[in-house]
């Protein structure tokens, strides 16, 4: 990946799709509190396990990537809600205490 593609995850995802990969795109659509990444931040995931971008500081990317695999199989988009209490946030790794919603869709 070229360094100037670090923020342009759509370009990365689109290039992967053009290579014949099945790709899902996750986008932060709402945040509250101390979420580290603003709305619009993206994570791209392929069925083969390639990952680019981020939707948090690294806390929930694993959970989002798992959900993305399901969306790639079914084609059905998902709205993931990581808006949970601070104590439970620790369990899914959102140690910052922020809350966010992530929209996951299959690309193309």
């Amino acid at each position: 990946m070229q360094t100037d593609k670090v923020e342009d995850i759509l370009a990365v995802a689109s290039a992967w799709r053009a290579q014949g990969e099945t790709v899902a795109l996750a986008t932060v659509v709402e945040t509250w509190g101390s979420s580290p990444r603003p709305a619009g931040s993206r994570l791209a995931v392929t069925q083969t396990g390639r990952i680019a971008g981020s939707v948090s500081g690294g806390c929930i990317e694993g959970a989002v990537a798992d959900a993305a695999q399901a969306t790639m199989k079914t084609g059905t988009p998902q709205l993931l809600d990581f808006g949970i209490s601070d104590e439970r946030a620790w369990e899914v790794g959102l140690a910052c205490g922020g809350k966010l919603k992530v929209f996951v869709e299959k690309l193309g």
Binding site: L10, E105, G108
Partner: peptide
Amino acid sequence: MTPDTLARLEA
């Protein structure tokens, strides 16, 4: 995202 939307967005 449909292939059509993706193509138009990328264009």
